[in-house]
Amino acid sequence: MTEQSKRRRYSSPLRQEHAQATRQKIATAAGELMVAKGYADTTMAEVAREAGVAVQTLYSSCPGGKPSLAKLVYDITLAGDSQRLAQSDRPAIQAILDEADPVRKLTLYAAMATTILRRIKPVHRVLRAAAAASPADAGLQDLLIDIERERLAGSRGPAEHLHALGALRRGLPPGRAAEQIYVLTSTETFEKLTEVCGWSETEYEQWLAAMLAAALLEQPGRADAR
């Protein structure tokens, strides 16, 4: 192996690590500013300064401008980090897949969803408020639509998994099961129950697990199973 080839092999992981660290710094700075000041009052130049990167670097990381920046914030907040790691490879998902009991699977899923909702709630609320205040901002409106479409698509994973195991109640197609998961795990429902109704996050998590099991799983003696 030539010295040049060695340099290429070892420099690629370093570049990826640097890019990942830059994405994390940008997302952290932008998220903190947007939550504190609002979406509209957060400028790209301000984010670049807080993240310690050049404005051009910011635009290179978020080529779609501020909506793209907001999506980066949302995605990294949702995942909990900036690693380019498939959801199926993350420990929480692996634990759900490895669990044999469908009820326990949904208990683990509810715990994971509650953790994610706690992280994503402030960002999601800022973006909703900005979209409501600026209905003509097509980029922002499209961002929220994309987020909801991704949430619905992501809900198909657990639905298809339960279907493959034969755990979904009879007569419930995976697509309809995914739609119920999508609605039950919405940020708005989490906000209403924990903020308006005053539930603790533990109470929400327990409720979510029970609702998912009741809606999705075959129940002994269920009369509407056909």
Score class of each variant (00 low, 15 high):
S186H: 03
I147N: 07
A110L: 07
E50H: 14
T202I: 06
W199C: 09
A54F: 03
G31E: 05
E205K: 12
A131V: 04
R8C: 00
A92D: 13
A177N: 07
E50T: 15
G171N: 05
A225K: 08
A167S: 13
F190H: 11
Y182H: 15
G139P: 09
E160C: 04
P135S: 05
A27D: 11
F190T: 08
L193Q: 10
R7F: 13
D137Q: 06
P102Y: 05
R226E: 13
G171Q: 05
K71P: 00
A133W: 06
E148W: 09
T115F: 00
D146H: 06
H18D: 14
P173T: 09
P67C: 06
V47M: 03
L106D: 09
E46K: 06
L162C: 12
R49G: 03
G221F: 10
E50K: 15
L140N: 05
R104G: 00
T187F: 00
W207L: 11
G80S: 04
I181W: 02
S5R: 14
V183D: 00
A214S: 12
M1D: 12
M112G: 04
V183K: 09
R118T: 14
P67Y: 03
A214E: 12
D142N: 15
R104M: 11
L97G: 02
Q83R: 15
R170Q: 14
G198S: 06
R169V: 01
L33V: 01
L184D: 01
A214Y: 08
R149Y: 08
Q20T: 15
V55M: 12
Y10M: 12
L152N: 09
S11T: 08
A209H: 03
A164N: 08
